[in-house]
Design a protein around this nucleic acid. Structure first.
Length: 546
RNA sequence: UGGGGCGUCGCCAAGCGGUAAGGCACCGGGUUUUGAUCCCGGCAUGCGCAGGUUCGAAUCCUGCCGCCCCAGCCA
């Protein structure tokens, strides 16, 4: 029972319930015109969250009133993503399910003298709307008779007119200081095929007319939306006040979730994909839920993020570190494994002929996860940056003549550095201490460092993708995004992974000292392992830069 | 400069007239065969600014200042 959440919306709902309201019904209303992104998760967690907490229900409702931008592909991806986040919905329903009712209410508005068919062009409507400081001027069609309006509107529906010839407008106030109230368009003609209703309609209702009515029809008790719709609330209320509907939900606005180094615009997503800067909507660098899923971010981590950021009306931009904290926190319980990204050969000069099998727990704090076995033999790989010929102070890894523990294995001492003609290090010749075996160490040696390794004999080659933020700027936008693209957002390594990880049916692992990794959902195959680094480990090692 | 919102620690965010919660980040320290996890401790005489009311103000009043949103036949 996560009844510990408190914010102005939950407070309001609590008050409504105490005041005798029957229950809680919310809705998550995406337009199926793109993939869901982290920003949406705030709305999802809020809408589904409050319903769960107060014993209500939440509709997944598609706001599909603009056929030219919408498609079945997106309705499917949205359901996949909401389900992945861990929520069950009522429905799904579609605004297009209500096209008949919507049309009826539109005629009702006409009959009541509250709406009229306007035959101005889009351009003329714009020009007569006035400006932010000057009132608009009434359309010459504003006072058309009811019968004529009804006739025209029916003929609009019947397909007698071309796109743009007429629109249905609300008759409110051309001098309103709120430009949204200056006779907003309610219906426009669009001879387009709708992904669900096909060619049944050639007129489509606008958001402002549709949303409030769908909310009312579905009995939404709290219509939660983002801040930019605050100015639309008077129109939301006007529509419901002027039609014969007996339910009037309150619209309550909260601020969007923004994240540093992340763009949330579908337009920009498309530009990134089309420009070849990422591989697709589900590229692990994308802030889409599909991308984050492939990256290895977990639903619990995203829910945790939404819980921690709260719900207010202040605009905010969360630091990426908070998201990463949530991801690490959830992944901490992942089984451990070892992988080497950039191999450096280590030859054990005193190794006995037969390989030895070592046993290691899958998790140091969770013995219930069991153990796995790994071989230890004459030739090993360690990561290149775990060896330095001239180490900085406080370096706790391998150095010439130095000693280090191989995690779960033995202590080794580096006797010789082998270089090629160009002076590059190609191999380390080391000696291991037979009595230093992990768990039964009688050597008395106390090496300062512990490093990871794999057995060259049995390790599996693997592609390992390391990711960094897509942008080098905390606030990328449509104007500068190309200039601030991070050229190193993806580093593809050809490394080695211990075989038990590949054999395991688990997908997410912590490769010790490197971070959390996940088997790529698309490209991974046991014969050709591909891992994505979800997030690196927290690292408090700060070498003094020379 | 019309209308609608928002301003509490680097980033979020409690607080609703009684003398600044918490989280992330950061900085110290402890445990540790992951420089991880975990554990301890530190981190706003100050709440956009200026006045005022009050015994007492982040909370009330007045006036400023700053930021965001709105002029789609998009949502």
């Amino acid at each position: 029972m996560p009844a510990d959440l408190r914010d102005f919306i939950r407070d309001r709902i609590r008050r409504d319930l105490d005041g005798g309201s029957a229950g809680v019904v919310t809705r998550f209303p995406p337009e199926p015109n793109g993939y869901l992104h982290v920003g949406h998760s705030k709305s999802i967690c809020l809408n589904f969250g409050v319903a769960q907490e107060f014993g209500g229900k939440t509709y997944l409702r598609y706001d599909d009133t603009n056929p030219e931008k919408e498609s079945e592909e997106f309705v499917e991806s949205i359901q996949r993503d909401v389900a992945w986040l861990g929520f069950d919905w009522e429905g799904p329903t579609f605004a297009s399910d209500y096209f008949d009712e919507l049309y009826g209410f539109a005629e009702q508005l006409i009959e009541r003298g509250k709406a009229y068919v306007c035959s101005l062009t889009a351009d003329e409507i714009r020009k007569t709307r006035g400006t932010l400081t000057e009132p608009g001027t009434p359309s010459p069609y504003r006072d058309r008779g009811i019968a004529e309006n009804l006739d025209l509107f029916r003929r609009m529906r019947a397909g007698e007119f071309a796109d743009g010839e007429h629109v249905l407008r609300a008759r409110i106030d051309m001098a309103s200081p709120n430009v949204n109230m200056r006779d907003p368009v309610l219906y426009r003609i669009r001879h387009a095929t709708h992904h669900r209703t096909g060619d049944d309609w050639c007129i489509y209702p606008m958001y402002d007319f549709t949303h409030c009515i769908c909310d009312a029809l579905e009995g939404i008790t709290h219509s939660l939306c983002t801040l930019e719709f605050e100015d639309h609330r008077p129109l939301y209320d006007w529509v419901l006040d002027n039609i014969a509907v007996n339910f009037h939900p309150p619209q309550i606005e909260f601020s969007r979730l923004e994240v540093e180094y992340v763009v949330m615009s579908k337009r920009l997503f498309a530009a990134l994909v089309d420009g070849g800067h990422v591989t697709g909507w589900d590229d692990p660098r994308m802030p889409t839920l599909a991308g984050m899923r492939r990256r290895g971010y977990t639903p619990a981590a995203i829910r945790e993020l939404c819980r921690r950021i709260g719900v207010t009306k202040s605009e905010n931009r969360i630091e990426y570190e908070l998201l990463e904290f949530c991801v690490r926190r959830d992944l901490e319980r992942a089984p451990r494994g070892m992988a080497v990204l950039d191999p450096l050969r280590v030859v054990l000069t005193n190794f006995q002929p037969d390989a030895e099998t070592l046993t290691a727990a899958w998790h140091p704090q969770h013995p219930d996860l069991g153990v796995r076995e790994m071989t230890f033999s004459e030739v090993l790989y360690i990561d290149r940056d775990d060896f330095m010929e001239t180490p900085p102070p406080k370096y706790r890894r391998l150095t010439p003549g130095g000693m280090v523990r191989l995690r779960y294995g033995y202590i080794i001492i580096c006797d010789e550095v082998v270089k090629d003609a160009s002076g590059a290090i190609v191999e380390l010749r080391c000696r291991y201490v037979p009595e230093s075996k992990s768990g039964s160490d009688t050597s008395g040696l106390k090496p300062k460092g512990v490093i990871h390794w794999v057995d060259a004999e049995t390790a599996r080659p693997a592609s390992i993708h390391l990711y960094e933020r897509l942008f080098t700027e905390a606030n990328p936008n449509s104007a500068n995004y190309l200039d601030v693209l991070n050229p190193d957002s993806l580093r593809a390594m050809e490394g080695w992974v211990e075989p038990a990880v590949v054999a395991s049916d688990q997908r997410a692992f912590q490769f010790e000292r490197l971070g959390y990794f996940v088997k790529d959902a698309v490209d991974y195959a046991p014969a050709r392992p591909v891992f994505n680094r979800t997030v690196a480990l927290r690292d408090s090692y700060k070498p003094k830069v020379p």
